[in-house]
């Protein structure tokens, strides 16, 4: 076996794969945050909790109703997205005229409620969720063994990111959405139901978080705390990328996952703080973020 910079290739590619998988979650979650922020001007602090709920819905579907992974991949986002729509109608819609920080505080409260409720029910330790039978096993790529499920996670995340981008940039609904982001009053005057678009946007963003949760269920333990630590890293990703661009959120997510993976290979002690260090550098050099437009 050859070696790269003194690192055995299996270890290097293994960590790169892990980084890419983390990046897939960063991308899907920061995409959801960016979509919600663009329309509602709210940072959805409950995003991590909704990701966790998505994973738990998949787990409950399997263990209480016997519904497997593939249906859960659709059912969980719909259920959690519907829950998001209720939240938006009941709570968030009352805050649009206020300072945006109140949205952050409210969703932070929601995150606490969700995490506390699930911790009461399931305890701190995680539940395991098996890899679906059709995606078990590994492929020998010659330089490393690639678990099929992990490959699927990356592909699925890419598909969802691309589909969201297409929906927003290339469809009529997306053009309404973009127009409503720019000037809600004018779009409303043209007879487009802007409040409905806002509600659906929040539901869609939340559904993205739940989808990521289902994807994550077989990889990480399904636990009440799985979302809160992740979401803080995703916040850093969002600050680095800036929230002006959908594509920017996707690229930044994957890139930072990879960088984190590389850090694990060459300097493992710094792996958990690497993204924050990059955030500090970006704040110094380009305070609005790499893809940020707004001042």
């Amino acid at each position: 076996m050859f070696e790269l910079l003194g690192i055995p290739p299996a270890a290097l590619f293994g960590q790169l794969l892990l980084g890419l998988i983390n990046g897939a979650f960063y991308a899907v979650l920061s995409l959801g945050l960016a979509v919600i922020f663009g329309m509602l001007n709210i940072i959805n602090f409950a995003h991590g909790a909704q990701y966790m709920v998505g994973a738990f819905v998949a787990w409950m579907l399997l263990n209480h109703l016997g519904i497997g992974y593939w249906p859960a991949l659709f059912i969980a986002p719909i259920v959690v997205g519907a829950f998001g729509i209720v939240i938006e109608r009941l709570f968030l819609s009352r805050l649009y005229k206020l300072d945006h920080l109140y949205g952050l505080l409210l969703t932070f409260g929601l995150a606490l409620i969700l995490e506390g409720l699930f911790r009461n029910e399931f305890g701190v330790s995680g539940q395991s969720y098996g890899v679906p039978a059709s995606l078990t096993g590994t492929v020998n790529l010659g330089f490393m063994f690639l678990p099929i499920y992990r490959a699927w996670v990356i592909v699925a995340a890419l598909i969802v990111c691309l589909a969201t981008w297409l929906l927003i940039e290339k469809t009529r609904l997306g053009s309404y959405l973009r127009a409503a982001t720019e000037n809600p009053e004018l779009v409303q005057a043209f007879g487009v139901n802007v409040p409905l678009i806002i509600t659906l946007t929040y539901g869609g963003g939340v559904a993205l978080a739940a989808f990521a949760g289902v994807l994550a269920a077989p990889i990480y333990a399904v636990s009440p705390g799985m979302g809160s630590n992740l979401i803080i890293v995703v916040f850093a990703v969002v600050v680095i990328g800036g929230m002006g661009s959908i594509l920017g959120a996707i690229i930044t997510g994957f890139a930072l996952g990879l960088i984190e993976g590389l850090t694990k290979v060459f300097y493992p002690e710094a792996a958990s703080t690497m993204i924050f260090v990059i955030m500090a550098i970006v704040l110094l050099v380009k305070p609005n973020g790499l893809f940020g437009k707004r001042a």
Binding site: L95, F108, G109, A111, I113, L114, G116, R119
Partner: peptide
């Protein structure tokens, strides 16, 4: 405690 704190957050903000 966490749940109650969350509820207080929501009530205070609303």
């Amino acid at each position: 405690v966490t749940v109650i704190q969350g509820v207080i957050f929501v009530i205070c903000v609303l």
